[in-house]
Amino acid sequence: MKALMSLGALIGVAGLLLLGGMTFDVVPSNTVRLVEGYMPIQLLLEVACFVIGFTGLSYMASAMGMALPRFWQGIGFWIFLMVYLKYRVYPPIPFSVRAMYGTVGLVTVFMWVSANEEDWNKFKQPIMNVLDAQTGMNRLLRYVYLVLIPILVGGFSFNAMMPKSEEPIELRTVHPAPPASTKVHGKTYTLQTSQNPYRVNPEGKYDQEFSNANIVEQGMGRLMKPNANPWDEKNQGYLKYVREGGEIFFQNCHFCHGDNLNGRGLHAFAFNPIPANFTDPGTIAQLQETFIFWRVSKGGIGLPNEGFPWASVMPPWEQHLTVDEIWKVVLFEYWHTGYYPRTWD
């Protein structure tokens, strides 16, 4: 048990040193990198390692007779969480999300320190000591708090009420609900039931399985499957249309959406927000092909009311491309990102 706790303490110390170093730029901020594709679970595992580390540290400190009071353990853990979210995760997390996580952190710290009567008494002891003010130091602290707390509350209130010149917060709907049907080049498409006519096997029959089996591998490499190279002239059906879609993409779309379809094209940073990142699992991977067909056809100007503030400069591509070309581009986007379009079967 002692050996395990020692190991835990070692992890805790190493983790804290690394985090501190990365926060104050003593060690490079990419010393421990967030690995693409594993970032979310890596984040949770890292916090779990810190929890194990803190448990070990707490155990060792107690064994050495230098136990940290429960009050400071609680406060310390919450501060650690805030520092971790602010300085470890990149790109920076918006304040609204950090505020949510911070509140959850505060609630869970409270649940931990008050889970049983003994811990709760330990936690509130320093607060009670200051309130009771039996010693000179506590009496002094009580006076300090008496002055400091109203000033802090007043300061926060003033800050909250003060008119600001910052741009207002936007609650933008990234994926507004599509219409039931859309009319492109004179033909009406029902979004719930329409299908991409080019998702076909070499025999020319609609085949979702075939196309799914021939998309690129997901992950950093984005490797093509063996014998599934769209630029092989011999390939017919799905892969042929992917090639044609790719040609259209690189003639029209890649300037903004980027060579890797990650929204970082040549002109991307002229816009805010930058164009959609198709490699993110929160974009086309969550949507039906018909949704993309509608968005490409109608562009930013065709967004419905709930898409306010319509922060999209995408042109309505129906004015420049044929219906077939739009379907082929959509096909290429799914192929290249390695995602499957959403289906309802």
């Binding site: 920076p92 304040f95 741009e167 917060i169 936007e170 933008r172 805010n272």
Partner: peptide, 14 residues
Amino acid sequence: VMTPAELKAMGGQQ
């Protein structure tokens, strides 16, 4: 929910 400045710092909506 974010300000346009945060949106820019994040490098995209996602």
